[in-house]
Design a protein around this nucleic acid. Structure first.
Lengths: 352, 352
DNA sequence: GTGAAAGCGCTAACAT
DNA sequence: ATGTTAGCGCTTTCAC
C-alpha cells in the first residue's frame, strides 16, 4: 500500500522537457505557452495523473482555494432542521463547479466563536458562508468583518450596514402570501407560530403577518368574526418557537389555550407545523376542516406530513448559488450586496 | 476593512526575542523550550492573535491536517436521509476535538469518482471517511486503496479483505432484535422492507430476518398461522426499497397486494417506515392494532411519526467517534480494523 | 514564449 | 535549550 510518491510540477516539467514556470503558466492562465509545449505538458500530466498540491499553491498565492461553511447553531437543532442539509447541498454543488473546496465548522458558544475566528483568520480559507437561523449571529459577523474576512450570510443580518453579502428569501413577502391565502380561504381567526426572536427573518415574517391581518381587517370592517382590538390580538396570537417540531406542538397548545376559536395558523417552519398538527389533533381538531395550516420551507417534512403541508417554498438551490456567487465576488474585491429571492406558495392539503 | 497583515511565526519570534525554530517547537511538542522562552512566546502569540498557517505547515510536514468526508450517493437521497446529517455532525465534532478540519465531497457518478480520486491523491487530505449507504462503493474504495489513501468506511464493505478501516452497527443483530420483538409480541406473518441491494448491511439485515423467522417457525411448529414453505415465504415477503419514504410506501403496497394477512413488518429505515404506514392506512389498516411496525435508525422521523416508531437505534455519535479514531490510527500507520457497534431497540408506539 | 531565481510560512535536521 | 539552514511545491517577477 505504499503511497506512491506524488508527482510534482517538477516531474511534469522534466517529462515535458520544459521549465517549471512554463508548466505553472499552463496550469493557470494557459497563456504564453506555445501550443507545442502545451501538448507535451498535457501528455505528461495525463500520464502521471498529476494534480497540483493545494497547500503549496495556497502558500505561494496567498489564496486558499477554499471557503468555510460556518454553522452558528446550537448542536441539537442541526438534527431537526432539514434546511441545513438542503442548503449545504446547494452550496457544496455550486462550490464544486468552481472547484473550490469547503470546510464545515459549527459555532455553539462564544468560546467556540473565538476559536473559529482565530482559525479563520489564519488564512485557511478565502471567505466564509455563515448560517445562523436560530439565533442572532451579529457578534460572529462583526468578528469576521473586523478580521477582514470576506463573508456572506444566509439571512438578512440584523445590522445590514455591515459590509457582508447576504442572500435570503423575502420573509415579509412570504408571510404575506401565506396569511393572505389563509384569509382568502375562509380563515378569520388566524394565528402565527414564529421562529425564535433574534434573527431578522423572524421580525420580517411577523411584520408580514401583522400587516396582512391589519389590512384584511380594515377592508372587511363589518365582519364580526374578525378581531376587534388588533394590537391585543397580535400580542396573544403570535408565539415564538425554535423551529423544532416539539416547540411547534408547545406553541400550538399555548395558542389554543388562549383562544379556541383559532381557525388558521401560519407556522414559520414545516417542522413546527408538524408539531402544531399534533397539538391540534390532541384537541380533536381536524386539519384542514377545523383549522387550516401553512408551513414554511417546503422541506421534505412538508410532503411527508399528514396531511401534506401547504407551505412557502424556500428555493435553497438558488440561495446556495447566490451565496457562492456573492462570496466569490467579494473575494475578488467587489463590494458586498444583499440578494433577496422570491418565495412561492405550494398548495397541498393542510388548507382548504 | 483592509485585511490586516497576518502575523507569521517570524513576527512571534521577533516579538519574543527567540528564533523561529523555538517558536515552532513551542507550537508543536512544547519540548526543549525553556519555560522562560515559552512565557515570552505565549505572550507574543496572545498579543498578536497569531495562528499558524495550515498551508505552510502542510507543505512543510507533508501532512494536510484535514480529512475528507466523502459521500458516495445519488444527490436526491441526501435530502431524504437524516442519517447523513447525524453522522456528519458526529464526525465533525470528533474531528474538531482533534482540531483536524474536514472537507465534504460528494460522488454521484463514475466521472466524479475519478475527479475526486485525483483531487484526493493530490495530498489535500490525510485520509478519507467514506459513506455510501445506498449503493455499492467498492470501486471508489478500491481506488482509494490503490492510491494509498488512508480510508475508513461507514459500513461493512462488501469486500472486507480490502485494507480499509470500517465501522458499522451489527446489522444482523439489529434485524434479529427487531424481528424477535415483533414475533414475541404477537406477530405471525411478518414481512420485511429492506434497503437497496448492494451495500452489505442490507444482506446482513435480510439474513437476520430470515434466520429469526426460521428459528421461530421451528420452535412453534404446531402453529397453523405461521408460514409453511419458508423459502417461498421469504421470497415474497422481503422487498427492497431505497430508504426513502416514497419507496417505503411503494414496498408496503406491493407487500399487501401479495399477502393481506401480514400483521407485522420490519422496515430498514424510519423514513421507509413512515411511507409504509401511509400505505397501510390507505388500506384502512391500523398501527399497531392491525399491523405492527419497527423501523431502523431512530432518526428524528421516528419520534415525529404518527404513531411514534419503535425502531432500532443507530448510535451515530459512537459511529462517528470510532470512524475518526480509526482513521487517525490508520494515518499513523496502524493496520486498519473493523469495528462493529451494538444497536438497541427503542420501543415506542408502532408496536403492541 | 520561456527559464532562473526568489520566496510564500512553516518544520526538521543539524550544529552548537 | 536554541539558532542556522535547507527545503516542502508552487507562483511570479524579471530577464532573455
Amino acid at each position: 500500500m505504499a503511497q506512491q510518491r506524488k508527482s510534482t510540477i517538477h516531474d511534469i516539467a522534466q517529462l515535458a522537457g520544459v521549465s517549471r514556470a512554463t508548466v505553472s503558466r499552463y496550469l493557470n492562465g494557459h497563456r504564453w505557452v506555445s501550443s507545442e509545449s502545451a501538448e507535451k505538458i498535457k501528455a505528461a500530466i495525463e500520464q502521471t495523473h498529476y494534480v497540483a498540491n493545494t497547500h503549496a499553491r495556497a502558500l505561494a498565492t496567498g489564496k486558499a482555494g477554499s471557503v468555510a461553511f460556518l454553522l452558528g447553531e446550537p448542536q441539537k437543532l442541526l438534527f431537526e432542521d432539514p434546511n441545513f442539509a438542503s442548503l449545504l447541498r446547494a452550496v457544496a454543488d455550486e462550490l464544486g463547479k468552481r472547484n473550490t473546496s469547503f470546510l464545515m465548522m459549527t459555532t455553539d458558544n462564544a468560546q467556540e466563536e473565538q476559536r473559529n475566528l482565530e482559525y479563520l483568520q489564519a488564512g485557511h480559507v478565502d471567505g466564509v458562508i455563515q448560517v445562523a437561523w436560530h439565533q442572532d449571529s451579529s457578534s460572529m459577523i462583526r468578528g469576521l468583518v473586523k478580521a477582514g474576512i470576506p463573508t456572506v450570510v444566509a439571512e438578512h443580518p440584523s445590522d445590514d450596514t455591515l459590509p457582508v453579502g447576504y442572500v435570503h428569501v423575502e420573509d415579509y413577502g412570504g408571510a404575506r402570501k401565506a396569511v393572505e391565502y389563509l384569509l382568502d380561504h375562509g380563515g378569520k381567526r388566524v394565528a402565527m407560530i414564529s421562529g425564535p426572536q433574534g434573527p431578522s427573518g423572524t421580525r420580517d415574517r411577523v411584520r408580514g403577518f401583522i400587516d396582512t391581518v391589519t389590512m384584511y381587517t380594515q377592508i372587511h370592517q363589518g365582519d364580526p368574526s374578525l378581531p376587534v382590538n388588533l394590537q391585543e390580538y397580535c400580542d396573544t396570537h403570535i408565539v415564538y418557537g425554535d423551529y423544532s417540531a416539539a416547540s411547534g406542538e408547545e406553541c400550538m397548545t399555548k395558542l389554543l389555550a388562549q383562544d379556541c376559536t383559532i381557525d388558521a395558523v401560519f407556522v414559520s417552519s414545516d417542522a413546527m407545523a408538524v408539531g402544531a398538527i399534533r397539538a391540534l389533533r390532541n384537541q380533536g381538531l381536524q386539519i384542514p376542516q377545523d383549522v387550516q395550516i401553512i408551513g414554511f420551507d417546503d422541506s421534505s417534512a412538508a410532503k411527508l406530513a399528514d396531511p401534506p403541508l401547504t407551505t412557502i417554498r424556500q428555493p435553497f438551490d438558488e440561495i446556495g448559488k447566490h451565496l457562492v456567487q456573492q462570496l466569490m465576488q467579494i473575494i475578488d474585491g467587489q463590494a458586498p450586496v444583499g440578494v433577496t429571492l422570491p418565495c412561492e406558495l405550494v398548495v397541498r392539503e393542510s388548507t382548504r
